[in-house]
Simulated scan of single mutants.
Amino acid sequence: MTPAINPEVDLTLTRQIKASPATLWKCFITPELLCEWFVPAPWKCADAVIEPHPGGRFFSLFKGPEGEEMANEGAVLLAEPEHRLVFTDFFKAGFVPNETPFMLADITLTPKDGGTEYKAIVRHRTPEDCQKHADMGFDQGWGAAADQLATLAENL
């Protein structure tokens, strides 16, 4: 069961994608596929490691158009194949606390209308962190990534 949305600390995104939950799951847990869609262009995902089990590593390396790099080291909290993936940067692999926690992503994939309802709930520790993420362009960035996911999944 997913806790209720708290608008002070949670951001959400929902998309209907014309692909099966199995295909979307594959796009999340296969590093090469994740790197094709996970970061909004013109940024790129240059590397990823996904271990889809509680305590497994969830790592991604983003590269910007000017050579910027942003490493994201986290852990998987919950992995229900083809249904739900929860990951966070509150922890590193093995549930080792992270020095700079920011967010938790709760992704659900629900069969609907011949495709999948993709829903992301992104939870933050404080209202300030939530606002920072919104100001960074959460709606545009996560929305662009979701559109890239749809394009990839619908063509697999």
Rank of each mutant, 00 (worst) to 15 (best):
A134C: 09
A120P: 14
L61V: 06
S20E: 06
E36Y: 00
W43T: 13
A71V: 07
F28D: 11
K44Q: 09
P31I: 05
E68A: 10
T100A: 10
F102L: 07
T126Q: 14
F38W: 01
E32W: 02
G137A: 12
E80Y: 08
K18M: 05
L104F: 12
E99C: 10
A75P: 11
L24M: 09
I107R: 06
A71F: 14
N6V: 10
E80R: 02
F91K: 04
F90R: 06
T30Q: 03
L33W: 08
L104D: 14
V96E: 14
W142N: 14
Q148C: 04
F59S: 04
L34A: 01
F59L: 10
P52K: 03
L11A: 11
H53A: 12
A120G: 07
E99Y: 02
W43V: 09
F38R: 06
K112T: 15
K112M: 08
E99W: 02
A145S: 08
E32N: 06
T2Y: 02
D47C: 11
P7W: 01
G115I: 00
E68G: 10
G56N: 07
P52Y: 01
L104Y: 12
T108P: 12
Q131H: 03
F91T: 04
K18L: 10
H124E: 10
P81W: 00
L61Q: 12
P97M: 03
E99S: 11
T116A: 01
G137H: 05
T108N: 09
P54E: 00
K63C: 11
Q148A: 11
E99M: 13
C35K: 11
Y118K: 05
E36F: 03
F62P: 15
D89F: 04
I107W: 06
G94E: 05
A93N: 05
K18T: 04
L61S: 15
A79M: 03
C45T: 03
T14S: 08
T110C: 01
F59Y: 09
T108I: 11
A79K: 00
L13W: 04
F102Y: 03
I29P: 14
E128C: 01
A134W: 04
G74K: 02
G143N: 02
V86K: 00
A75G: 12
